[in-house]
Design a protein around this nucleic acid. Sequence first.
DNA 1: TCATTGACTGAATAAATATTCATTTAAATT
DNA 2: AATTTAAATGAATATTTATTCAGTCAATGA
Lengths: 190, 190
Amino acid sequence: MKPKDEKKIRQIFSATLKLVHENGLAGITMGEIAKAARIATGTLYIYFKNKNDLINALFTDCRKNAVNIYFKNYHESDPFKKGLKVIWLNLLKFRIEHFEQAVFVDQCHHSPFITETTKEITRKMIQPLYKLVERGKEEGLLKDLDNTLLLTFMVGGINEFIKYSKYSSKKITGPQIEQMFLLCWDALKR
Amino acid sequence: MKPKDEKKIRQIFSATLKLVHENGLAGITMGEIAKAARIATGTLYIYFKNKNDLINALFTDCRKNAVNIYFKNYHESDPFKKGLKVIWLNLLKFRIEHFEQAVFVDQCHHSPFITETTKEITRKMIQPLYKLVERGKEEGLLKDLDNTLLLTFMVGGINEFIKYSKYSSKKITGPQIEQMFLLCWDALKR
DNA sequence: TCATTGACTGAATAAATATTCATTTAAATT
DNA sequence: AATTTAAATGAATATTTATTCAGTCAATGA
């Protein structure tokens, strides 16, 4: 028998991400996805029960990718500020390199495709970041405010800047990255 | 003859915003919009040539609403920090009260509906904010960095925090607002 | 009051899109 | 090499959705 080609799933996923980035969730059809993935429309239905399933599977996949990367190279033993910067850079890098995923995930949050259970994944994902901020407060290095407040400021600045840089197709430079972290740190530090 | 009912346009707009907030751009149909606006499907086509036109008109309307509000109560003669806070509060308040518009506009940026010319509106809209930041730098109060960098950090924190608060349906409190501005100011100030 | 005009309706039609399925193809097993 | 099994195809079908239109209604001006 012929086995399923696991590579096809990657093809389908990246075709979908590309199309959603260009046209949004509102602008994708199964036909176009298949074409972009260089397979027949019917083949999509071998790998996914239907459009809904495909989108939900891709959403879950994106979230997994993201969470795997956040804590890369972070060691509890590092001094707090250094550790924070490692994670902050991971967040930044991931968002720059996988902007398509960010666009897709954002759109999914208001869409008829994603189920409430799938959304739940996102909430679980950010738990470790809460711990990080908690540590910073315990060490007296961060402002003693809502974790959410601190985290959203940390993430919001990154997200917004990358959005603008992508829309105006300007590359982000090394010095800009340093400056961004400075802004972030000045905001959060006690 | 019977005149067009201008109130209907508002009905159509707010029905569309409501539906997009719930189901995203991918989840709206002309039929549902009509139903939510309590009119017949055909009537939509009296006010708008087609779906595309409706969406573009709504987009333009949203942008106008936003820009009208940003500089409310701001006087050049106010000291910089006070003026900044006025505008910052306007941004915040608008985003909280018209979150549906924010979701809609965001989704439109990656959609097959919105034309490049319509998007141009957004770019023009933020020009006055650049001037504001420029003033802060001239007065030596803000960090001497990219305007875009400063602005995106100012806006990004707001947007992200509101997003989280809406998704978890937690009301934003007065003290939180003060704390948010503190974070923002600490980030931007020299 | 009546005639005219254009808004308004919603069922009918057209167009777009998701999904199925008969057939073909390719890998694995005997 | 022959047989089996499931993947792969893409045209056909089903479904959903945008758009039209013939008929009705309501405001206006003569």
